[in-house]
Simulated scan of single mutants.
Amino acid sequence: MSSLGILFSAFVSIGYLLTNRMMFIKKKDPSTIYEREILLNEEQRKWYERVPKKEIQIDSMHGYPIQATVIQTIDAPRYVIFSHGVTETRLSSIQFAMLFEQFGYNAVIYDQRRHGTSGGKTTSFGYYEKVDLKAVVQYVEQWRGPEAEIGVHGVSMGAATALLYGGTYENTPISFIIADCPFSSFSEQLAHIASAETSPYWTEQALRVANLFLRWRDGYTLSEVSPIKVVDQIKVPILFIHTLKDTFILPHMSEDLYEAANEPKQLVLLPEGKHALGYRKNREAYRDAIADFLQHVKKD
């Protein structure tokens, strides 16, 4: 094989390797999530067993089903849609559904594309997920009518999804967004992972190759997964939450998003907990932050 052929083969191999790691990221075993959230958590298990639930299927505009659960505990048209993080399932949102019940909200928990029992071939870290979130919001709006109050709460990739949704679609019916440990830029996040893990995969040159193959294979580029670019287009109140000890998605990303967002907005930095553990490790402070935020946005 010629030198040119060897270089081309290496280029293609690197492109496929990098985009495979993103598009087909290894997910947690659903049984592990079920054990963590239900079997070994008596409080959540008892709550989830007693609350009225309705399993629904929502059609994604991309041609696959989005599986969701409506939890109706409040006799009012107030709902929070919970968008979970990468590798998780909707069961990881139960803790937040319980929390928001205290404030008079019902819950819609759903599986992101390629997660849980929802369809979808790839994970896109918010690019296609924001379109699915739009479908879930539209379902709630059409079901409960224009009087419904709808909020969105997202964690990690789910938080980025919520911000991308809010900053992309005009005239959205949602009343607020709560973004728990979002990344501001997926490219920057990948670069941080490379630095933290001294990974040979995510060098600057490798990211350029990944970008080319990502557009070819999955229809978007890394720059299109950047909440920081659209957060100033969001017209509803936003609460950013991040733990100071998060070393996976650094807290400065929420600070940067907060600075770029329009008023009304709030930023809460919590002292304890690694990535996506803000509520588990700071229950009282997290609850107080939600209560204060909702006091200003909740409709009578």
Rank of each mutant, 00 (worst) to 15 (best):
R50V: 15
Q266Y: 10
H62G: 05
L7Y: 13
V268F: 00
I290W: 01
P30C: 08
I177P: 08
Y201R: 05
P173K: 12
N41G: 02
L133S: 02
Y286Q: 01
R283G: 04
G278V: 02
P173M: 12
R90K: 14
S2Y: 06
T123P: 00
M98C: 13
K281L: 08
E141L: 13
H242P: 03
T87Q: 09
H153K: 09
V80C: 08
M23T: 08
S31R: 14
H252A: 12
R114Q: 11
R45A: 13
Y110T: 04
K53F: 09
K27S: 10
P30R: 08
Q44P: 01
F100E: 08
K274S: 14
F82T: 06
P227A: 15
Y79K: 04
L257Y: 07
E170F: 09
R215E: 01
G158T: 09
T221P: 00
Q57H: 05
W47M: 05
L239N: 05
T123F: 07
E284C: 00
I25G: 04
L39Y: 07
V140P: 02
V140L: 11
L294N: 01
L207I: 06
F186E: 11
K28A: 13
R36H: 09
V155A: 10
V80S: 02
I6S: 03
Y279F: 13
G120Y: 03
Q112G: 15
T221Q: 03
D292H: 11
S156F: 03
N41W: 01
A206I: 06
Y169G: 03
I56D: 01
D218F: 05
G278I: 01
Q67M: 11
V12D: 02
L40N: 15
V268G: 00
D59R: 15
A135P: 00
I66K: 02
T117A: 06
K28F: 14
E170S: 14
V140A: 04
V108T: 10
K46I: 14
V231D: 06
T32I: 09
R144Q: 14
L270H: 06
V230I: 14
P173T: 12
P52V: 05
E88A: 12
T247G: 06
F24K: 15
G154A: 14
E88L: 11
I174N: 02
W202F: 10
Y165C: 10
S60E: 02
F176G: 07
I66A: 04
V152W: 00
E259S: 08
V236M: 09
F186W: 13
D246S: 09
M23G: 04
G116C: 04
S223R: 12
T69A: 08
E101L: 07
M157L: 10
Y48G: 07
S124Y: 00
R215M: 04
